[in-house]
Nucleic acid binder design. Structure first.
Lengths: 251, 251
DNA sequence: TACACTAACCTGTATATACAACCCGTCGCC
DNA sequence: GGCGACGGGTTGTATATACAGGTTAGTGTA
């Protein structure tokens, strides 16, 4: 255990992250305790403590004093992206989510998709189109391409029970992502599927998610402009433990 | 220096955050070194190190080995919000930014503004309208209301040299914020100011920034849908040092 | 003057040690 | 059987110490 260059606490972190990402450690599983890491990783307890503490800050694990350290639920990851799983979002508002699968098949990647997924044109990809409803009103049209190698069992999945993005993150959680948000006029197909008025603009989120350093999935998410908005909230870190000089509570 | 209940490293962090937020320490100022904190805060160097290290992770300060610790530029704050200072954004693309101030005056808050800023209707607020250009093409119409008490010297400011949001964050940086993003059709005034085609939708960002627990500023930012997009990128924390998660199993 | 070297200071990491608080199972006492 | 005390394991924090490596200013020499 002596990869030179990288600090030892970082090596310990990567060891554990690797086991989480590879699936060897699953959510709610127990992570080696500090004292166990002293033995197995050959570091001091303070070093093991730092590794586990930083993994806690980063959302990988949760620690309970007197009990142990456990892999966390990984839902926190998509939080930063502001658009979480649409089903969770709807349920959090106390509404009913329903998904209608329009298409679900394998096809050859066209140029734009191939470029986004960094594969050759005509490579096999899975293609999905799903409309998500909130209380029976369509609120998102999801058009998604998934690299075939990444999720071989995708076509057998029932996406009315679990959204594609939830399914994908269950296969390999906590990866990289980039996205673009723009306002655009929908084409006729999109407009019909979302039951939008003519000339109503839509909010379009284009997102790629990465796994193992390669794009795994490419999605276009269309939302009706009059029924959907992205919300974000920001509190500077370090302010969250109840600091703040002035605490005037309002509302 | 012994407030029981809060750990000492946290007390040190809050001490420094307080000086940054209050303005006693400004960007690029030097922060007490670890050894100075050993003397002035009465903690061990390891404890001071932990405080400064966490402030680094949280974006408050930057550290240079061999040199010292300095208050950061605070641009990190808006980073999470994905729309940073529009002028920085434009310059980062190597383009030219120009701001045209349409209006800049004091007025009584109307109902919607009063609610957003949590003040009474007709309370005095500053009202600003600025068009931001990228290479002489309008790219953002900024309509902003600022609580009068928050920035008394606002009307004297030259907003062609410094954007309103940069000015506000220079007064009291690193506060809380919330925002909403939506797609909408602009009204005629907005469309004209942004030189948009008819029926072209716009991307609307509505943002409130908070200071000392109260809303300080409320802004509507309109962007032409065909010339503007919000981008975001997400890398899970802990993966940023070049990890390659391998499948090294243990036990 | 030009240049090399050193001393002082800084961050970054690693370790051993210590104590507090917490959780839980077990053992012993009532 | 019931109940409380206790001990072992766990996290959380604090400290002293040590060494490595970076930066800078100043000093001294060629």
């Amino acid at each position: 255990m002596s990869m030179p260059g990288k600090p030892r606490y970082q090596q310990v972190k990567e060891l554990i992250i690797g086991q989480i990402v590879s699936g060897a450690l699953r959510p709610h599983d127990r992570v080696p305790s500090e004292n166990e890491l002293v033995g197995s990783a050959g570091v001091s307890r303070m070093t093991a403590n730092r590794a586990l503490r930083e993994l806690t800050d980063e959302g990988y694990v949760e620690r309970v004093a007197g009990v142990g350290t456990f892999v966390s639920d990984l839902k926190a990851a998509s939080h930063v992206l502001e658009v979480r799983n649409i089903a969770d979002e709807i349920e959090r508002r106390g509404h009913r989510h329903r998904a209608v699968v329009l298409e679900c098949r394998q096809e050859g990647a066209e140029a734009a998709v191939a470029e986004a997924l960094q594969i050759k044109v005509d490579t096999k990809v899975f293609y999905l189109r799903v409309v998500h409803h909130e209380n029976d009103k369509p609120i998102q049209l999801e058009e998604r391409y998934v690299s075939a190698g990444f999720a071989p069992t995708l076509l057998q999945q029932d996406f009315t029970r679990m959204t594609p993005s939830a399914y994908l993150s269950s296969i390999s959680p906590l990866q990289e992502a980039d996205q673009v948000v723009r306002a655009a006029l929908p084409d006729v197909t999109v407009r019909k599927n979302l039951q939008m008025r003519v000339r109503e603009p839509c909010l379009l989120v284009i997102r790629r998610t990465w796994a193992h350093g390669r794009p795994a999935s490419f999605a276009r998410l269309y939302h009706p402009g009059d029924r959907f908005e992205l919300t974000g909230h920001y509190i500077p870190p370090g302010m969250r433990m109840g600091v703040v000089p002035d605490k005037s509570e309002l509302r």
